[in-house]
Nucleic acid binder design. Structure first.
Lengths: 151, 151
DNA sequence: TAATTATTTGCAACTTTGTTGCAAACCTAT
DNA sequence: ATAGGTTTGCAACAAAGTTGCAAATAATTA
């Protein structure tokens, strides 16, 4: 069965099989913690904080391992961090990892005030911003707060 | 001499006199720490992190006092937090506090990759963002990263 | 201005979050 | 199966942020 991509870049449990492949492609050893954490990102439709992962994995992995795994995934371009209004660190799967490379693009993120879920809106085009003289932009992050489709 | 406002919402040292007024208007006792911290924001042209304030005030105030002062200022709408790509907590003077009320608006912030200064670009109009069905925005934060006018 | 009341500060202790070094465990390749 | 490199978990630490409470300070009243 073919992989299912929607505009929020989530996956079905069918993609379990491709998790090993993503790790290998990124020259990472296939370990329990990496598989489980990557699986969580694929199952979960939004962004995850370190704390979310710690809870969802129970006592299974050391806190340090989770930190290091997230760091590794960010370096490899598998996930990216999301700026949030409350400045809590959250991660989401990179859009590009859904397809092939790991090139970083501009993002539009939506943080729900009510359920607190963060969505990675890859479908939304980053708008043009006119900066004052002398400012040269290299990356634009748009963080929209409000009420999400499920609330 | 009249107060000097430019588009980055900074002040000259002339505004010292108005610091007491801002505190009183917000029903806050006028204390050394509050005056000093508010003064720092007015002198400094960009955003400040807790750590910046700690350094700039030397050993003068307790760490806890700085935390509490920042919290109070945020609650009163004197300053606001800024989402940054590295998720470090930064604060900047609210645009509205430059004039009268404390109503929170959409912000465009610029974080310089080189000098790491954060600018609050009140002059830049927040662009329209078309969200998918069911998402209702209430606040839009735009974080632009790049090279600033001084680098 | 002095006294009373309310607010704020600083200290101590604590929680949470994130980092580092290192030996044991594990994964990969031969 | 074994050798070599990588990853994990532990312990210890560092940084960031919070809470309760007595002392100090600011605002209010007389």
């Amino acid at each position: 069965m073919a992989t299912l991509h929607n505009k929020f870049c989530n996956f079905t449990s069918m993609d379990m099989l491709s998790i090993d492949h993503i790790l290998k492609r990124n020259q990472l050893s296939v370990t329990d913690s990496r598989k489980k954490i990557l699986e969580l990102f694929k199952e979960h439709n939004g962004a995850l904080a370190h704390n979310d992962i710690e809870k969802k994995t129970g006592e299974k992995f050391d806190r340090v391992t989770i930190y290091r795994t997230l760091q590794t995934f960010v370096e490899k371009g598998i996930i990216h961090t999301i700026p949030t209004p409350d400045n809590s660190v959250r991660y989401a799967l990179c859009k590009d990892e859904c397809s092939k490379g790991h090139h970083h693009d501009n993002h539009v993120h939506f943080v729900c005030d009510i359920c607190n879920v963060t969505y990675c809106l890859d479908s939304v085009v980053t708008p043009e911003v006119n900066l004052p003289q002398g400012f040269k932009p290299s990356l634009i992050d748009v963080v929209v707060t409000g009420r999400c489709k499920n609330c």
